[in-house]
Structure formats: structure tokens, C-alpha cells
Amino acid sequence: MPLLEATNICMQFGGLRAVDNFNLEINEHELVGLIGPNGAGKTTVFNMLTGVYIPTEGDIKIDGSSVVGKKPYEIVRAGAARTFQNIRLFKDLTVLDNIKIAFHNELHYSTLEGLLRLPRYWADEKHATEACLAFLDIFDMADYADNLARNLPYGKQRKLEIARALATKPKILMLDEPAAGMNPQETKELMDTIQLIRKKFDIAILLIEHDMNLVMGICERIVVLDYGRIIAKGTPEETKNNPDVIRVYLGE
């Protein structure tokens, strides 16, 4: 059974069919790239998969159960976490608190237990701090734990956003143009981070990206979108040589 399965999903904005009959299957531990020219509908697909938009037709299943019509936070609980094209961090909070918020659902004390500072509050908070610090350590960011997120350099902010998404313990991680606005050095670091995630966490990744080096370098499968339709699917080699893809995207 695929981890994520989108069957014939469509998105109709008034008279515009932004996404038409999109099909996608992602299996466990797979890294799939979604590419396409500007306005092809990549982000719309993403927003449907993460619950921001409700597809006008079709079905999305995560781990076998349908998530159509669920709220974004419910989809996170179902096991799909995401990052945003323009980084969305909790900027005025510390790096540690950013992770702790994503860790929210791992803590179980009630409002009243928190107010009375009962033992479960202390136990849970201690566990959260330790777990989040250990988590930051995986990404080499434990030194930044007390910094405000807004003070991090761009590459680190992106890394924190990815780490925060992973802190929700997803089965599938969706990255929306993670290399946007990065220089080659930062892109290289990002590739390392993604490899690290694949090694340390047992999850699948869906990647939207424009940076061809990144996509061709790390993806196992690529889906190419144009005008809301899938025009090619396959391994990086196959897509690279597909005449349709060359025509609309790579240039002749």
C-alpha cells in the first residue's frame, strides 16, 4: 500500500482548471520530485495534499485513509508535514521553542495540570526540552537553541523549518521549493540535510523544486507538471530525455 496516494485530484478555481486529473503514489522511504514551469500548478497540488485547499474532485489517501476535507492540523496528525516556499518560522521565538511547538502533540498535560504545575507538567516539559535539544543536535543546530529564529542566516532558517516539520513525526515530508533563494553553497548544504534526513528518519519525501541539479541529483522519481496536467513521470534519466519535458521546461 502506498504511503500517499492521490487519485484523479482536480482543482477548479472558477473557470480555471489549475490542476487536472493529477495522480501520484509515494511509497515508503521514497524521494519524489515534482517539477514544472511557473504556474504549472505545483503549489496548488501541494496545498491540496496538505489540506489548505480541498480538491474539487478526486481522493487523497495517507496511509490508507482519506484525508480530503480534513484541516491542515489533522493532516499533520495523519502523518504529512510540510515546509513553505517562503519560510514561515515563529520568528520572535527561540529556535528551541519553534521545535517545541511542533512537538506540541507529544505533550499530554492538560491546561489545568499546566496551571497547577502538577508533576506531569514538569515531566512532560523536561522530556520536551531534552527531546527537542536532541533533535536540534541531529541537525547540528543545538548551539543555536536560544537564538531567536529571525536572527538565523537564511540557510539555517530553512534547515530549522525542515527540522520543525520533522518534529511532528511525519511519515511523509513535503518540501515546497526548499532551495528557492539559496546560493550554490547553501543548496549544497540543503542536499546534505535531505540526505541526512533520509538516513536518520524512516520517511518519504515529496519535493517541489526548480533547481535542476538538486532534483536530478537526489530524486528517485520525478513527476513533471504543465498547465495542471502530468506530462511525464519516471526516473531522472527518463525525464531528462523526454521530448515533452525538454520542450516545455528544459528548453530545446
Binding site: D92, H104, N105, R164
Partner: peptide, 11 residues
């Protein structure tokens, strides 16, 4: 801080 991001991390 960011309502959309909060929802996207399960709040």
C-alpha cells in the same frame, strides 16, 4: 507568530 505555520505543525 504565524497562524498558517502553526496549523502546519499540528496546532
Amino acid at each position: 507568530e504565524d497562524e498558517i505555520a502553526a496549523e502546519a505543525v499540528g496546532v
